[in-house]
Amino acid sequence: MTKGEQVVDSLLTPRTDTIELMQLKRELKSLRRSNSLLRAQVHEFNNQLHAISGMIQMGRHADVTRYIRSLNQQDRLLEEDLTARVHDSSVIGLLMAKSSFAAKRDVVLSVAENTVLDLLKPTASIDVVTVIGNLVDNAVDAAEESEERDAWVEVEIQQDGSKVEITVRDSGPGIAHEHAQKIFRSGYTTKTTEKGKRGFGLALTQTICERRGGKLTFTSSGHGTVFRAVLDFALLSEKDSEALHDD
């Protein structure tokens, strides 16, 4: 450095809007969940192809035809049933994927007959998908632990204007009293596996509900647990609305 020269160090610190950052994190988590569901569906599809291949090798062509018709009918009936009451394609896709995901774990996932949902704005749809996805994942985990009866999960969605209420019931053993006051804490989990990778779903769901002017509550007993999430898309603050790009 010659005489008269001056070195100036500078540090550029980006200022990211907190709400926008949370939205990006949720979108990333939604994409990761979609990838996981797609991998599960690919695995399921491979099993079905193996079954078809085996029947063909044995020359049981009539059985192959009946098997394929049965597969197509199950998917078609579920899609037709959902499409008649749910008009948001992202939510329909999630529920169909979760139904397959639950079935692979011997859990029956059903959608309540009184379910109804209109087409949502993109960011609202992301929030609803995130809430349903997290609650269903927890419910399937709980139902899988049930030893006394068939394992099941029921999803109910109700809409009244801008307000959406999501109820998820399961047949699990319920939430123990020592866990009941902690389940909404970020990073808290009752699972002993995958340390460091669980315990954020309910905390995130609660944050989304509260930011949307609603709340997340639950009731639990030895006969199962019911989670109820309420979101009001008309109550997003003006500042948050700008950050979420005209939601």
Rank of each mutant, 00 (worst) to 15 (best):
D246G: 11
L95I: 08
V86H: 01
R212H: 09
K29F: 09
K29M: 11
S100Y: 05
G222L: 10
R60P: 00
I126W: 01
A203E: 06
Y188D: 03
S125T: 00
S99H: 13
R228D: 04
L231S: 06
D88E: 15
L95F: 02
G133L: 04
E238M: 06
V107E: 04
Q6P: 00
G54W: 05
K3F: 12
G187M: 04
L202P: 01
Q73A: 13
V91L: 06
T219W: 00
Q181H: 02
V128N: 03
L49K: 05
H179G: 01
A234W: 02
T225L: 09
N47Q: 14
K121S: 05
T18R: 14
Y67W: 08
I52W: 06
K239S: 11
K195N: 05
L231E: 08
Q159Y: 04
F45N: 13
N114E: 15
V64P: 02
L109Y: 03
E44G: 08
L202M: 01
S171I: 08
R66D: 14
R198S: 11
L120I: 04
K29H: 10
I68A: 07
S110I: 11
D232E: 09
V128D: 01
L119Y: 04
S70I: 02
F227Y: 15
G199R: 02
A151D: 12
D240M: 10
T219Y: 00
V86M: 10
L31W: 10
T16V: 15
G93W: 05
Q158H: 07
F227V: 09
S36M: 13
L82N: 02
R69P: 04
D127S: 05
T16G: 12
A176W: 01
G93D: 07
T65S: 12
A203K: 01
L236D: 07
R211I: 02
P122T: 00
R69S: 15
S125Y: 00
I126R: 06
I157L: 08
G54F: 04
Q206H: 06
G59S: 07
G187Q: 03
G187F: 00
E210L: 07
I175S: 00
N134Y: 05
E113D: 14
V107R: 02
E44C: 03
T207W: 06
V86R: 03
S36Y: 14
L24E: 14
T189N: 01
T65M: 10
Q41M: 13
A40I: 12
V164I: 10
S89M: 11
T2V: 13
T190S: 12
E148M: 05
R76L: 15
E79H: 13
S99C: 11
V131C: 01
Q74C: 07
I166E: 02
D137S: 14
A151P: 02
S90P: 00
I183P: 05
V86C: 09
L82W: 02
L11T: 14
V111E: 00
F184L: 12
L244C: 05
E147V: 13
A142D: 04
H223S: 15
N47R: 13
H87C: 07
N138D: 04
S237F: 07
L11N: 11
V8A: 10
H50W: 13
S162F: 00
L12D: 13
L244E: 10
R33W: 10
R228E: 11
T205N: 04
L78Q: 08
K197A: 09
A62M: 08
Q158Y: 02
S146A: 15
